[in-house]
Amino acid sequence: MGEDFLQNFEIAIKVNNLNLWYGDNNALKEISIDIPKNKVTSLIGPSGCGKSTFIRCINRMNDLVRTCSIEGEVLVYDEDIYNEDIDVVELRKKVGMVFQKPNPFPMSIAENITYGPKIHGIKNKNELNRIVEQSLKAAALWDEVSDRLDKSALDLSGGQQQRLCIARTLAVNPEIILFDEPCSALDPISTAKIEELIMNLKKDYTIVIVTHNMQQAARISNYTAYFLHGKIMEYGDTEQIFENPRVKSTEDYITGRFG
């Protein structure tokens, strides 16, 4: 799109004319967007508008959907991730994802964290212990669980589980983290903790977050894209989108007239 407001920033994800179909259903239409590095970019829009589908294109999770087909370009650090010789494993290592519902593995807290590093070849025990501590600290969970790392992750509360999932994602040292409505299953206090965490993480990571909660988008994101019917209707500075939307339907949505 060549957004003016991004002129001075390094671009982490560049999407050009992305079209996506589920069977015959054209779920994403001509999506073009530049997502800046080390910023929080939020995707808002009513249910079924394609924002979750879009975020799943960035780490190729849509590959799991058999009927899904894609046209156009998604560049992550100038590399076309739909190119045939792209290694999806490497891509997903670089682009982590946190899901809507906390989905810890049915293992201990520590094993949840070491799972990623282990599959990517780290075997040294001290190194793994260091990663556990570092990741849990970065996800603001260390103080709550440091005395029970060998206990089941499923015994944690929902908010703790979600922070564990964030810690797990951090453990493989990604550059970009995708959040797919990470707080929709959580209570307000847990939500506040996750939001605080996301704002701290943007120093080191590029963050893309899908959210239904417009206050959340306004609170935590630098840039906001408004999706409707599989298209991006408006993309800009979060402040500008919420205070001075240029497109009528954006205004209707954020003022609660529909959605």
């Binding site: 999770m61 997903r92 599959i119």
Partner: peptide, 23 residues
């Protein structure tokens, strides 16, 4: 959701089956 969590971390399908789903 547990499978997706594993795949999203860069695990292969077989790693996901062997290390997460089967246990």
């Amino acid at each position: 959701s547990i499978r997706e969590g594993s795949l999203a971390m860069g695990a292969t399908n077989w790693q996901t089956i062997y290390k997460v789903v089967l246990p």
